[in-house]
C-alpha cells in the first residue's frame, strides 16, 4: 500500500441530465494489485454512488465488464492500474454501441444476431439420451474448441471498423460461434446457418482488418473464423476439403 493516487477520466452520461457524454475525473488510491474495475468500485462505494457500469465475476469469465481503457477495448477486471501509470486513465463505454448510461452499453443487437446464427447443435436425427453420448475424439474437439471459448464480452465488436460503419454486419463473435457449431462433429446444421453467414452482411462484409482477434481476451481468433468461413462458403469442393463431414448430409 502507498499514498500514491492515480486519476481516472470516466465518461459520464445520464439520460435526462446530460445532453451528451462528457468525462469526469476521479482520483483514486493507486494500489499495485488493483484493476481498473477495483478503481471503479472504489469510486462507486466511496466517492460517487451514481456511476453506473456492469461487472460480476471479477475473474475474466462472465464478460460483463468490457470498456474502452485509453481507447482500447479491455475487460476492466483484467486491466491493471499499474500498466497505465502514471495516468490519467481514460475509461469510456465500448465503442460502436449505443450507450444506455455512463459505461453501460446496449447489447440488444448482438443478442438478436446471436440467435440468428443458430448457435445450437442441429441434427437431422437426434439420438435418444438413453443411447449415451456422441463419441468425439480429442482431435475433433480440438478443431472447434478455440471458437467455443467466447465469453460474449463484445470487445471485438468495439474494435471492428466494419461494425462501426455497417451495424448490420453479423460481426466477429456471432460468426465465430456459428463457425464453432459448423465445425463440431456432432452438428449437421451448416446449411441452415449458411444463409446468415453468406448474406451480404455476413462474412463477406469483413475486410479482414483483424482487430477483433487482437483485442479478444480469450484467444478466440474470430478473424480466423470469418476468413475460414469465407473460404468454406466459396465452393462446396473446398468445403469438403477443410471440413471432411461437409458432404455428409
Amino acid at each position: 500500500m502507498s499514498d500514491a493516487t492515480i486519476t481516472l477520466e470516466v465518461t459520464r452520461y445520464r439520460p435526462g441530465h446530460d445532453r451528451e457524454p462528457h468525462p469526469q475525473s476521479f482520483e483514486v488510491p493507486f494500489q499495485k494489485d488493483w484493476v481498473v474495475l477495483d478503481a471503479l468500485n472504489h469510486i462507486k462505494d466511496r466517492i460517487d454512488g451514481t456511476l453506473s457500469y456492469r461487472w460480476s465475476c471479477r475473474m475474466g469469465v462472465c464478460g460483463s465488464c468490457g470498456m474502452m481503457v485509453n481507447g482500447v477495448p479491455k475487460l476492466t477486471c483484467a486491466a491493471f492500474l499499474r500498466d497505465y501509470r502514471p495516468g490519467p486513465i481514460r475509461v469510456e463505454p465500448l465503442a460502436n454501441f449505443p450507450v444506455i448510461r455512463d459505461l453501460v452499453i446496449a447489447l440488444d443487437d448482438f443478442m438478436e444476431k446471436l440467435r440468428r446464427v443458430k448457435p445450437w447443435i442441429i441434427r437431422a436425427e437426434e439420438k435418444p439420451v438413453s443411447e449415451g453420448e456422441y463419441r468425439q475424439t480429442p482431435a475433433q474437439l480440438e478443431t472447434y474448441k478455440q471458437f467455443s471459448m467466447c465469453i460474449n464480452c463484445m470487445l471485438c465488436y468495439a474494435a471492428c471498423p466494419v461494425y462501426g460503419l455497417a451495424p448490420a454486419f453479423v460481426g466477429p463473435a456471432a460468426i465465430a460461434l456459428a463457425y464453432r457449431y459448423n465445425l463440431d462433429s456432432r452438428d449437421e446444421g451448416y446449411r441452415l446457418r449458411e444463409p446468415v453467414m453468406s448474406d451480404a452482411v455476413g462474412v463477406w462484409e469483413c475486410t479482414f482488418v483483424g482487430e477483433c482477434s487482437v483485442v479478444c481476451p480469450k484467444g478466440v481468433d474470430p478473424a480466423a473464423a470469418i476468413q475460414r468461413s469465407k473460404l468454406a462458403g466459396a465452393t462446396d469442393w473446398l468445403l469438403s476439403m477443410v471440413m471432411p463431414w461437409g458432404g455428409r448430409r
Binding site: R54, S56, C57, M59, V61, C62, G63, S64, L107, M111, I151, N152
Partner: peptide, 10 residues
C-alpha cells in the same frame, strides 16, 4: 444479468 453472465459461468 444477461443469462450468460450468471455465476455458473465461473
Amino acid at each position: 444479468v444477461y443469462p450468460m453472465r450468471s455465476h455458473t459461468v465461473s
